[in-house]
């Protein structure tokens, strides 16, 4: 038995297959390129938010609009879904049977959808207070940043459904497995972005 070695970031398939890492290495690295360029987009939106957060134009302020308890619940939902997607990938790597993978991914999908509903509820509450994107520079930059993350989560949920269909159609062949690895990296990455949103947007709004 050869010692499985880490060849690319994320869970490696090595150790359970002949040499799936050869295909995975370049594919995963390319996906990392996408993730990092996505990170640049988010970073610049954060910078814009930082410069606009004080420009409330006499309208709603961060403190009046952001609810710490719902931000905490959203954080816990995403964080837990990051754990369950990891468990799903481990089940795929070692069991390669549908049932445990579908179970973990189903939990992840449910947590992602719950997160989206919470976020939608937050936004509609803000709208009902007159906090809409055209009200002030603060709200424009807020609605550029946070819903973009929500759209990423929505894309991740749709991607998860597509992967379910691919598993049903093709089983766990190498291409499907690499796609699921990419999906898990995407999902973990969204959790990291959310930590930044939580800190820079929600928590900072309640400091001072």
């Amino acid at each position: 038995m050869t010692q499985p070695s880490l060849r690319h970031a994320g869970i490696n398939l090595g150790g359970t297959q002949e040499d799936p890492n050869a295909d995975a290495e370049s594919g995963i690295f390319g996906f990392w390129m996408f993730l990092m360029s996505d990170a640049v987009i988010f970073a610049l939106l954060f910078a814009i938010y930082g410069t606009a957060v004080a420009a409330t134009a006499g309208g709603p302020t961060p403190r009046s609009e952001f609810k710490l308890d719902s931000a905490l619940i959203e954080t816990l939902l995403l964080l837990t879904s990051s754990l369950t997607v990891g468990m799903g990938v481990l089940a795929m790597k070692y069991d390669a049977t549908r049932r445990p993978v579908f179970a973990w991914m189903g939990v992840t999908l449910a947590l992602g959808i719950a997160f989206l509903f919470m976020e939608w509820h937050d936004f509609s509450t803000m709208f009902s207070h007159g906090a809409y994107p055209t009200r002030s520079a603060f709200l424009s930059s807020f609605f550029a940043l946070v819903p973009l993350h929500g759209l990423h989560v929505l894309a991740g949920c749709i991607w998860m459904l597509v992967m379910g269909a691919q598993v049903l159609a093709y089983g766990f062949d190498t291409r499907v497995k690499i796609n699921i690895l990419r999906l898990s990296l995407f999902w973990h990455f969204l959790d990291v972005i959310w930590i930044a949103i939580l800190t820079v947007v929600y928590l900072q709004g309640h400091v001072s």
């Binding site: 880490l6 060849r7 690319h8 970031a9 994320g10 690295f29 990392w32 990051s82 990296l185 990291v192």
Partner: peptide, 25 residues
Amino acid sequence: VQFRCFLHISLSRSSRHDLLLVLFA
């Protein structure tokens, strides 16, 4: 912590390329 534990970016020699990409980004 999340990069280390969830995304498995580490200082080990075999994942250097990814580490370099992340550091450059």
